[in-house]
Design a protein around this nucleic acid. Structure first.
Lengths: 207, 207, 207, 207
DNA sequence: AATTAATCGAGACGGTACGTCGGGTCTTATG
DNA sequence: CATAAGACCCGACGTACCGTCTCGATTAATT
């Protein structure tokens, strides 16, 4: 998916003057993500990002109005491809998509998505919609899974999809929330175990 | 409840010289909360807090080692009394406790709890336990509710309490996450409606 | 006079390709002078000059290698025709030429000449000769006047011309130096009065 | 002399809070002068000054509002003790004071005084008076010399002192103006020779 | 007519310095 | 001693300009 979230300039296509370096954007986003991963939020510096991307600060500020916007986009760019999943069974799909989210949250960049969403919720800025947009992407993916399951007759026609998404994603979020720094290295098997437990709970008596 | 979380210096009682102004602590915490509510995280300034509290910066730093600690305490001080609930029915208790959480999250100070928990999860600092402690409080409360329900025969003995808590709290969290600034004023009825939907979903086929 | 001082590229005459816009040079110099007059040195910007001249920055940098060179030329272009003066008497000539200089210094562009000369004196750049060249022009003019006066018998054959030039020009310079922004609008009569006083002093006992 | 020219803050004496480091001011001024001497105007950086002075940038900006103000003060601080001179004879005094000025101008810091004066004359800022104040100091010194000479009977009672000062100082200024970088190392004897020539010219027929 | 080569306006580029702001510490004089 | 005030060092912020570069679009002189 990976749609720009707060997105560099509305892009008035006139092609007057030197065109923007098409590679710069990618390089900056990557640099931002790496910096964020290595130094964390409080060590995250625009100067460092620019330097690492081999770019002048003006080039960064030409595309993003401030630090937050950049980080949001950098982080949102990573938030793709969680969603498309098709294992053949309803239960399997939910486990798969939840495990994806779980893994996403264990990655510093992925976790940053959540942090920014939390920030955005109360901040007076215009970025308030970030979380909503991100959430929509996820929701849509799970809704597709549910629709498929209903088609296949694996789920009742009146299965309340919205609460299901909220519960599943929320549960994963809450669980990763309690994992401190060192514990954030879970083996794949453990992730699947935890996720399966949640899916089982959510699906109990509905298949 | 309101246990100090990272807490002003243990304060070795020796009482030589001028005693600490007993009101200062409260004034600082209040000021911190107000500042945080009005300006958000990025506008939250130690100078501003001190000024609003009518206090010197040293007085603040004498009690809290840094900005994070202060905000954590300021926020934790508000985080009380979510938990004890007894409406007489399992369903009612869950609705009540979820609504409490919902309301808590709509308050800037309450929301800050979540933000700090998110921060703490990846930060190398010693605050990593904050979220855990907070989560424990909540979990314990819901576990008590579940135990009571089982006693009353309203729930099966093998009801998986842990996933239930995660799903319910997670779902509330995710839902408030998508609420932007202006939408964060929900009428009580709307809160109950949303919460009831979630509880119904979680309890379906289990009562 | 108006010789190019650091001058737009020697221009190797080959004339293939589009010829340079003949008006651009003039427009840029004018714009530079106006900008300098309005904003002063620290507000003098290449972008602004280009914009005002209705020209791309490349067009400017194609003709002058840097900001200094442009300003020098812009300013030197205005520095003409101070020198040729012939009133018929020695005293009259000196008054005339001094008044010319005085007026020149009250004009922002003229004043800029001095500023650049001062800059050039210590800067390691190759502009070091600017002041010298300018000074030579002036000196030559006054020397001509002195020679004429000696011919006419108005001045002794051993009149030390060099110190005379230094004193006269120096005195005018120092006097304009103490004039702040608002005071730099002197009526013609006042200029003549001040200049006459200086010439009288310098000529005393020598005619 | 060395009066503050644009001078750090009017200084509202209340002595609340930590007093300003009394050494900082001196250290900053010295650092500024050294930086200016070594790197010249265009290489003169606030960061470098602060670093060299072992001081934070805020400490600098607390005392001077911007780069210009600092440089003016740094440079003005050096402009002292040119003036007091008493060799016993009128001619000797003038030679002495002129040689002092000459030497002052050959020093980068001293030359900067002139540069700033020139800047100040046209700049819209409030520093327009710098040059005037500086000039006054010098003028006053020479006037004292003239007065003494008249007392001693070495000069006529009606000697026009003002033009004399202007001519002498102006001539020295103009002469140093034509000296390029490398030529600015004159042996003491050469300075005296040049200065004596000027004084002789100015005094001719008046002693 | 097609080609070639230079110039043009526009504006993005990598840098560097600016002046501001905030964190956390330190130093006074006053309780 | 603690306190209120406020200066201190540090380092990041976002802006502004410099001088360079790269576009697409002219504009002539040369094929």
């Amino acid at each position: 998916m990976n749609a720009q979230v707060s997105s560099p300039q509305p892009a008035e296509r006139k092609t007057r003057g030197r065109p923007r370096d098409p590679g710069a954007e990618r390089r900056i986003l990557d640099a931002a993500l790496e910096e964020y991963g290595e130094r964390g939020w409080s060590g995250f510096t625009m100067d460092a990002v620019a330097r690492r991307a081999g770019v002048g600060k003006s080039t960064v500020y030409l595309r993003w109005q401030d630090k937050d916007s950049l980080l949001i986009d950098a982080v949102a760019a990573r938030t793709g491809s969680i969603e498309d999943v098709d294992t053949g069974s309803f239960h399997g799909d939910l486990v798969e998509v939840s495990a994806n989210l779980y893994r996403h949250y264990l990655d510093p960049a992925g976790w940053a998505t959540l942090r920014l969403a939390v920030d955005a919720a109360t901040s007076p800025s215009s970025l308030g919609t970030v979380s909503a947009r991100l959430a929509e992407q996820h929701t849509a993916a799970v809704l597709a899974i549910v629709a498929r399951a209903i088609e296949r007759g694996e789920a009742p026609r009146d299965l309340p999809a919205a609460p299901l998404v909220l519960c599943l994603y929320g549960a994963v979020t809450m669980q990763t929330l309690t994992l401190a720094g060192s514990e954030r290295q879970l083996p794949e098997a453990e992730i699947r175990r935890r996720v399966t437990e949640l899916v089982d709970f959510v699906l109990a008596g509905r298949t």
